[in-house]
Design a protein around this nucleic acid. Structure first.
Length: 277
DNA sequence: CCTCCATCCTGTGGGC
DNA sequence: TGCCCACAGGATGGAG
């Protein structure tokens, strides 16, 4: 659900509440949410009475830069969303993490618990998978030659490559399909098969798609699992060109959008605009 | 190192 | 109406 535009929208809404604030308490209702914390009990202890210096993001990971060189890493997984609430407000089911400041509570609501939260020392960070994340798709997108070098040595389908957070961080299943549609590249094309012009087209499609998603508050699908922290639904949903539009006419050429499965993920494309070869 | 695959969960919607 | 199954925005670790 939450991909880069949704996570960035979430980050922006949390900044006024968290940046500069001190965490008075950090409650974790489901210990599973702490499975990436080397010693789960450390989380609440490290967060308590510590100031949040800034709230950043890399790909789909929210990064709280905490006083004392600690880093809070928060990932929303498939079904996570954040809410800002008054102190003491009644918590709905699946409110798995609550950070309390002097002025407000920040809730992480995550029914499927694929999300997680940790607070790491610099050494723990260095040894963690988070340190190996690729460059952010919006803020640090590699130039075309570098991106091309990374892509053309891979034999995987483009769809899988765009979802590989080590290559570029931030795209998920929805926006990967949107990027490929905009780039007019078939999702099953292998990375190694791209020529320089196609790499350029692919690269040039990434930021416009993410920025459009961001501009419209992200994507909320039918089940409303994703909502902005203020409770609004994302409005990019109506603008999707490929994802979830199986059988509906391509907005460019009218051909019905097709759905296939690529490495276990549903994948949508226009067979005319995105030819297989 | 790369690629594929199962797995972790709960909720929802469709088909019968 | 109720039941069961398929499916869902993601990341990871192990096998080959």
């Amino acid at each position: 659900m939450p991909e880069l535009p949704e996570v960035e929208t979430t980050r922006r809404s949390l900044v006024p509440v968290l940046e500069g604030a001190t965490i008075n308490s950090a409650e974790v209702g489901r210990t599973r949410m702490l499975r990436r914390q080397p010693r789960p009990a450390d989380f609440a202890d490290r967060m308590r009475d510590r100031r949040v210096e800034s709230l950043g993001r890399r790909g789909k990971f929210l990064l709280g830069h905490m006083e004392g060189d600690l880093t809070m890493v928060l990932h929303l997984g498939m079904s996570g969303r954040m809410q800002i609430q008054a102190l003491g407000a009644e918590r709905p089911a699946h409110t798995n993490v609550v950070l309390a400041t002097d002025d407000a509570e920040v809730w992480m609501i995550d029914p499927r618990t694929f999300g997680f939260v940790v607070c790491l020392t610099p050494d723990e960070w260095d040894g963690s998978p988070f340190a190996a994340l690729g460059p952010d798709a919006l803020d640090a997108l590699p130039r075309s030659p570098q991106l091309g070098a990374a892509i053309t040595k891979r034999k995987s389908p483009l769809k899988s490559l765009l979802l590989d957070q080590h290559l570029i961080a931030g795209l998920g299943n929805i926006y990967a399909d949107e990027v490929l549609h905009r780039a007019r590249l078939h999702p099953l094309r292998l990375g190694a098969s791209l020529d320089a012009e196609e790499v350029k087209r692919l690269r040039a499609s990434i930021k416009p798609v993410l920025e459009a998603g961001l501009r419209h508050g992200g994507t909320t699908l039918d089940d409303l699992a994703y909502l902005l922290p203020d409770g609004r639904a994302g409005e990019y949903t109506q603008r999707l060109r490929a994802y979830g539009r199986t059988g509906q006419p391509c907005r460019t050429c009218g051909t019905p959008i097709e759905r296939i499965v690529v490495t276990q993920r549903s994948t949508h494309f226009c067979p005319t605009c995105q030819p297989a070869d």
